[in-house]
Amino acid sequence: MQLTGTHKFNASATKIWSKLMDTDTLARITPGVSKLEEIGQDQYKAIAEVKMGPVSGSFSGNLNVLDKQEPRSFVLNIKQSSKIGNVAADVKIELQSISEHETDLSFDGKANMSGLLARTGQRVMSGVANTLSKQFFKALEEELASQEG
């Protein structure tokens, strides 16, 4: 499954970068994530509860941040497994400054699913991914706004 999208933030690339690299913030704003623990340099352990259309499950696994080009881009490598199937994804996240207070965040990647998730969930997965990314962006926006306030 292809994962792509963009969102414009009213914040500088540096500021967004620092939020994205902060474990506590990420744990707070990522939909479904109940636990995010740093286990090494740019390596995290994550536990998430996600409902995807007809199937829902508790996922656990690793997140790795690769190819960091501060504050322009990084690759998020995700490996999550659950009883309803597993997800492996590589997503490139890019931050492009439009002005001092405006930044376009775009992501582009591919997710591979297996198990029940692939068998019965695939149909609705891109919709689920869109919803989750919207929730994430909204939460990140609020996070950025609250810091300013």
């Binding site: 591979n112 699913m113 692939a118 068998r119 019965t120 695939q122 149909r123």
Partner: peptide
């Protein structure tokens, strides 16, 4: 089957 060998329409919904 997708390119990873996952049967992606393995239910009566699909």
């Amino acid at each position: 089957y997708d390119e990873n060998g996952q049967l992606i329409n393995g239910s009566y919904m699909d």
